[in-house]
Design a protein around this nucleic acid. Structure first.
Length: 547
RNA sequence: GCGGCAGUAGCUCAGUUGGAUAGAGCAACGGCCUUCUAAGCCGUUGGCCGAGAGUUCGAAUCUUUCCUGCCGCACCA
């Protein structure tokens, strides 16, 4: 980040002095291959058209201007006009005071300042316990919230509770049926029916709390079952999420939209904009005008609202609450729903302010064998069970180590293993190792010096500089993870940083060197540990001091 | 049929905002513990980036046609 900023400043002033415009698509980045220096830029190629010179000549001119820069030690021109920059060791060494001073704030950025974002995630129907698929959405959403916050956004995390509609009726009915069966009534299982064990447990509780329920009017009985069941299940969900360290600031009820007439308000709004019309006794949304395959029903001919209707009202409400940007995290099986939702957002006049992130399915395996899951059939491994079995850290890291839109195999046996197939330990181990060295140094009465230039100039070998260069990239990694909504890049970065640390550790015996070198190395280690901890914290994974 | 996502090393995946010689880990093979945590390190082997065509100085990345896999296509939520 520092290297990038410095380069950007220097280059843009050179370009300005030559009368060239900064090419929009110019890329300044650390090259993949270390032979190409610390940073590379492809601007010479991009400039060749406007400057009417060949890239090589442009590169030469820029190189000449840079010869006296205090931080840039070397400029190489490679291939068709790549400029490769090598920074001086002192430039990198100076990073350490910054990291240590910022501490837990190292890596924080202001790019999201003043932007109010809402992230809505999990939002599972309260009809059964959370399963592993919800866990992935939970880990992703929570991590995004942390990242967005760390990059300066004003973030609110929300859970949309689908407490209206058909699934709730089925839930109530399922409990009622079980309750009657448990009292010996001969009632057949209906077609739409939640079959899980937990329904039977809830039915027992309902009966215990309402001894006269069997004598009541059936509609009242079912209503009692529904209400109690939903509350119990929702409490369970909240408990599971809390155990997984997942934060929601607002629990938003779907039913509340209907009861305060928000949906009707939104209908009126859409009609006024000529985006809704009556046909065949139903109310339709003209989504075809905005890129959807077909128009969608808002109010059914029987008078009931569709899920879509309340969802539009819900999003309308989000924007009315003042969010500049809304992020929805959905299961990938909802992808067909995106065009109509985007159309709805556009119809509300908020085009481009909704971002939908899809979370692909999780295949839960045990020793390579797939475990079948279905809420309806009542067959699943709950999130709670999985977290209890493999631990929060391992589960979260596994969920966040893949792009969210690709399938994830989650093998319980594998995630429990403490091997490299399970990188959470690798990263945590790096942190614990550093803490261990620092403990040892303290025990031996070795002083950790203050980070002045003289002391830090002892950090000169490849491994030490390599670590410093990685530290410099942390800001960038965090910012782009936020910008592209891709938390997994942080996991990959942490693996790289841990790898560089392990390499350093095994190649240089830290505590057996000259006094000044040890002191400087301890400062470096502190900076690395801080960065590892900050990164892990963004993933919601702990950074243990001992393992 | 229409649409979405995917196809990269034996396996699991990064890289996809056009950039240089396509990267990790696991597995395989060979080394490294009388010193700070071997949950570690070093090295070797391993690639028609699904196939073809196109766009350009340059394509794993963009366009297009195929092939294969998963998913979705309700007046369900």
């Amino acid at each position: 980040m520092k290297a990038k900023l410095h380069l950007q400043n220097v280059l843009s002033s050179i370009l300005e002095s030559k009368g060239w415009e900064w090419p929009e698509k110019a890329v300044l980045e650390p090259p993949r291959d270390k032979n190409f220096g610390d940073m590379s830029a492809n601007i010479a190629m991009m400039l060749s058209k406007q400057a009417k010179m060949n890239p090589r000549a442009i590169a030469e001119e820029i190189k000449n201007e840079l010869d006296n820069d205090p931080y840039i030690e070397k400029v190489d021109i490679a291939g068709p006009g790549f400029l490769n920059f090598t920074f001086s060791n002192s430039f990198w060494q100076n990073l350490i005071p910054e990291v240590l001073e910022k501490g837990a704030d190292f890596g924080r950025s202001e790019i999201g300042k003043g932007i109010k974002v809402q992230v809505e995630y999990v939002s599972a129907n309260p009809t059964g316990p959370l399963h592993i698929g919800h866990g992935r959405g939970a880990a992703l959403g929570d991590c995004l919230v942390r990242i967005l916050e760390f990059t300066g956004h004003d973030v609110e995390a929300e859970y949309y509770v689908n407490d209206a509609g058909r699934q709730m009726l089925i839930l109530g009915n399922s409990i009622w049926v079980r309750l009657q069966q448990s009292e010996g009534r001969d009632v057949a299982d209906p077609e739409d029916f939640y079959k899980g064990e937990y329904i039977i447990d809830i039915a027992k509780e309902v009966l215990a709390l309402n001894p006269t329920i069997l004598e009541m009017d059936e509609a009242d009985s079912i209503a009692i079952c529904r209400k109690y069941g939903m509350n119990q299940i929702l409490e369970g969900i909240k408990k599971d999420l809390a155990a997984f360290d997942v934060r929601h600031d607002v629990w938003f009820s779907e039913a509340s939209l209907v009861s305060v007439g928000k949906v009707e308000e939104t209908f009126a709004d859409l009609k006024a904009r000529n985006m809704a019309y009556e046909k065949d006794g139903a109310l339709w949304f003209k989504s075809t005008d905005l890129g959807d395959d077909k128009d969608r029903v808002l109010r059914k001919s029987n008078g009931d609202l569709t899920y879509f209707a309340s969802d539009i009202a819900y999003h309308d409400d989000k924007y009315k609450r003042g969010f500049d940007k809304v992020v929805d995290i959905w299961g990938a099986d909802h992808h067909g729903y995106i065009p109509r939702m985007q159309a709805a957002v556009e119809a509300l006049g908020k085009k481009g302010q909704l971002e939908v992130i899809l979370v692909q399915l999780v295949n839960l395996l045990r020793g390579g064998e797939q475990i079948a899951m279905s809420t309806r059939a009542g067959k699943f491994e709950t999130l709670e069970d999985v977290v209890n079995e493999v631990g929060r850290d391992a589960a979260r890291f596994m969920f966040l180590s893949r792009k969210s839109d690709s399938h994830l195999d989650f093998d319980l046996d594998l995630v429990k293993q403490k091997t490299m197939e399970n990188p959470v330990y690798y990263v945590q181990y790096a942190h614990a190792r550093i803490c261990s060295v620092i403990r040892k140094a303290t025990d031996e009465g070795i002083e950790v010096g203050t980070s002045d230039q003289n002391l830090l100039s002892n950090l000169n070998n490849t491994e030490e500089l390599g670590l410093l260069k990685l530290l410099d990239q942390f800001n960038d990694v965090v910012e782009s993870a936020g910008e592209y909504m891709s938390p997994h890049t942080i996991s990959y970065y942490l693996r790289d940083l841990a790898s560089a640390l392990h390499r350093f550790y095994s190649m240089h015996h830290i505590l057996s060197a000259e006094k000044e070198i040890i002191a400087a190395r301890l400062l470096l280690l502190q900076a690395v540990a801080k960065t590892l901890a900050n990164g892990l914290n963004l993933l919601g994974v702990s950074a243990p001091e001992k393992m």
